[in-house]
Design a protein around this nucleic acid. Structure first.
Lengths: 138, 138
DNA sequence: GTATGTGCAAAGACTTTGCTTTGGA
DNA sequence: TCCAAAGCAAAGTCTTTGCACATAC
C-alpha cells in the first residue's frame, strides 16, 4: 500500500477512486507537476476526474504536509510529494534555458540557514531556496 | 533627481506624471508592496492613476532590472527596488505570525550558493531564498 | 506631429466555491 | 444511512490587453 494513501487514511480521508489515482500520479511524478499536469495524468487513468477535485485534493495534501507547493517564479503552482525526513530537505535549481528543475541538498547549507535565523531570533518553520541559472558551456 | 527616474530616462521611457509618482512611491517604500499597495500609495498623490498603469510600469521596471518581483508564498506579486550592487544581494525572512518581511544578507551564504551551483555545472543568473518562521519566545 | 502612455473596461489565467448528486465507511 | 467527496459551472482574484484619448519629446 502506498505511503501517501496510508497517511490519507490515517487522516480520516475517504479513499475514493479519484483520490487513489491522484495519489498514484503524485508518487510516480519525479518532476514538479502543475495542477493541470497532475489532472492530465490522472485523466489518462480516469477521464472523468475533474480539475476541481485535483485542486481540492492537492489542497488537502498540502494542509496535511504530504505535499509541497512551489511556484518557481511562474504564474501557476507546482507540487511535489514531501519527503519524510527533514534532513532530506532539498532545494531547486531551475534551468532558465530548458525549464528543467534540478534538486540539490546540502547539510552545510541547512546548518548555515538555521544559524542565520537563530541570529535573528527566529525559529524556522519552512524555507525555500531557488537558484535560476544555465549550464556552463565548456 | 532620483536614481530610478534617471535610469528610466536613460532607457528611453517617457517621464509622465504617473510614472514619476510611481517611481517616488517605490523609492520611498521600505517594505515590499504589492501592486495594489503601490497603486494605493500612488493614488494618494494622484487619484487618477489606474491599476493598469501601475502594472505596466512595474512590468517595465522589472524588465529593466530596476525592480524585483517576489511572491513570498502569497497569491499576488510584491515588489522592491533592486539594489545597485550585487554584493548587496539580500534575502527574506517572512514572519508567519505577523506577515512582516525581514531582510538579511550573508556573504558566506552567497559564497556557498555559488559553490553549489558551480558543482552542478551551472552559472547563477538569480537566486531567491526565503525563510518562513516565527519569533522565538523567551 | 507622432509614437508612447493612460484609463477604462473587458478578457485571461489560475484557483475557489455553491450546489446537487454520488459513493465510501 | 449519512456525511464526505465529486462534477459542473459560476464566481473570485490577480493580471493583461484592446481601444480611444491624451501627452512627452
Amino acid at each position: 500500500m502506498s505511503k501517501l494513501l496510508l497517511k490519507c487514511a490515517e487522516a480520516g480521508l475517504k479513499m475514493t477512486d479519484q483520490r487513489k489515482v491522484i495519489l498514484k500520479v503524485l508518487e510516480e511524478s519525479g518532476d514538479h507537476p502543475s495542477v493541470d499536469t497532475v489532472c492530465d495524468r490522472a485523466k489518462r487513468v480516469d477521464p472523468s476526474i475533474s480539475i476541481a477535485t485535483v485542486y481540492r485534493t492537492l489542497g488537502l495534501l498540502a494542509e496535511l504536509g504530504l505535499v509541497v507547493k512551489h511556484d518557481f517564479g511562474g504564474t501557476y503552482a507546482r507540487f511535489e510529494v514531501k519527503e519524510e525526513h527533514d534532513h532530506e530537505h532539498h532545494h531547486h535549481l531551475i534551468d532558465t534555458e530548458t525549464g528543467q528543475v534540478i534538486e540539490f541538498q546540502s547539510d552545510e547549507l541547512e546548518a548555515h540557514i538555521h544559524k542565520i535565523a537563530e541570529g535573528l531570533g527566529y525559529k524556522i518553520i519552512d524555507h525555500t531556496f531557488e537558484i535560476f541559472g544555465h549550464k556552463i558551456k565548456k
